[in-house]
């Protein structure tokens, strides 16, 4: 048995859900729904044709100004589908959010960590919110996540 608490992820509807107990095998590593987080940094190198090649490498070390990608991969290891999946990721202090990374759907974003919406729908003191004011992002997965299914979400940012 593993006891899983619902997390306060900023949505009042989800936060209101009570803690529940889910029966699961003891090998917890590959059961349930897993989330794998990584931070990648753009590595620029000169290609043979004279262009600059940009690859993403794990960001063990960064410096101010570096472009980084925060990547979250989920996988449903359960034998049955799940629904209502919400993947949330706070934007760390010292990180300036830019937008969804290439190949990732755009997340809903939040300035205050509580109210989420597309960036264009948010305002700060009556003015349109800027990307660098975003403090948290989340992706709402529509429909069911079948057993064994996985997906990757990521956002691009820079080190302040």
């Amino acid at each position: 048995m593993i006891k899983i608490h619902s997390l306060a992820i900023g949505s009042s509807a989800l936060a209101a859900l009570a803690s529940i107990v889910i029966l699961a095998p003891a090998q917890a590593k590959t059961t349930g729904v897993t989330l794998t987080n990584s931070v990648l940094v753009q590595h620029k190198s000169a290609a043979a044709d004279g262009t600059t090649r940009i690859t993403l490498v794990p960001a063990n070390h960064v410096v101010p100004g570096d472009r980084v990608v925060f990547r979250t991969v989920y996988k449903n290891h359960l034998a049955q589908p799940v629904s209502g999946m919400v993947v949330s990721n706070p934007v760390p202090a010292n990180i300036s959010y830019h937008g969804p990374a290439e190949g990732s759907p755009a997340p809903e974003v939040s300035i205050d960590g509580a109210h989420f919406a597309p960036l264009a729908a948010l305002t700060v003191a009556g003015r349109p919110a800027r990307a660098d004011q975003v403090r948290a992002v989340r992706w709402l997965v529509h429909g069911q996540v079948p057993a064994g299914a996985a997906a990757r979400y990521s956002y691009e940012a820079s080190v302040k």
Binding site: I4, L7, I22, V87
Partner: peptide, 19 residues
């Protein structure tokens, strides 16, 4: 700079979450 993501979901009417 540290970062932890989280997810919530529903399964057969009950809710689950993970970090």
């Amino acid at each position: 700079v540290s970062n932890t993501a989280s997810a919530s979901y529903q399964m057969e009417g009950a809710s689950g979450s993970t970090t």
